[in-house]
Amino acid sequence: MSTTTLDAAPRKRKPRREVREITLLVVTIAIVLGVGLIKPQFMRYDNLEFMVLSAVVLGLIAIGQTFVIMTSGIDLSVSAVMGLSAVVFGLASTTIHLPLAAALPLCLILGAVLGSFNGLLVAWVRIPPIIATLGTYSLFGGLTFIVSNGTQVDQVSNQFAAFGNANLIPGLPIPTPVLALAGVALFAWFVLNHMVFGRNILAVGNNAVAAYNAGIPVKRTLLFVYMIAGALASFGGLVFVAYTGSATATTGTGDHVELQSIAIALIGGTLISGGRGNLAGTVIGSIFLSVVITALVFLHVPAIWYSAGEGLMIVAAVTLGARRGGAG
């Protein structure tokens, strides 16, 4: 038993250069090439495009989740926010013909308002994030049922459908949602690395007390972080309903988007204990999951084993990435 004891010795070494996103990228490309060799159809442009496209909603939400986890928090309510937004704006597009130009800012505002509620609970009432957002998960989820009044979104307006599927720039064969994900990821990267706010997030995640003593506005930082997570979850809901054309009151919560988004952030190399985030890893992580599922279908694996395959690939990807102490 002495060896295992030694293994568990707390590690206080300097954080290594982050390589998780590179490992993930290599694994993802290896899967694409490997499956592509057996089934050339897998490597065709339209399939690659579709795999990235189906990663967009989770990718957007996981970026928000990454911000929250960097502050050593967690947001379980993202799935409920996503579902609420999908139902609200899906119904609004069909019933009152809400134009997309109005829906976009409104959805960000809705998400930010819901997210700031989480932020208030965490920063001011000091409820542990997992509990605060577990509570709001039920509250926001119930709100979705009230708003939808037992009905569902069956089809969205053409304007919405175009936003979810068509290419924004004619001639450039990249669908609008993929561009949106790229834009959000770049902006998030800029905020994290080149703005004071980004440094504050990492400082709060590393040591909230030290950050407070250093004069960093801890509460305000937390509030903003949960607002961002809410806004992105809401945006994810809008993209979801535009892309799929349909939504029900269990959209988001029914698929456990909250757990999936956390998984993606952690697979991407973000530390659950906070203080370190990896946005590139998050984006690649979301595409990685989408590639894994599609690969399983292409390899004719029976459908009941998909989630097992997903689970094994998560373990593999996380183990192959840089090993760090502090797990467990």
């Binding site: 189906s54 909603v57 799929t244 959209t251 698929d255 599609t294 279908v297 004719h300 459908a303």
Partner: peptide, 25 residues
């Protein structure tokens, strides 16, 4: 040629549908 499951979820059903069409042309 294949049987897939969407778990009565709109998003899972859509991905399953897309995957069927891509993997079984």
């Amino acid at each position: 040629v294949t049987t897939q499951y969407g778990e009565s979820s709109p998003s899972k059903s859509l991905s399953a549908g897309l995957n069927i069409l891509q993997a079984y042309p």
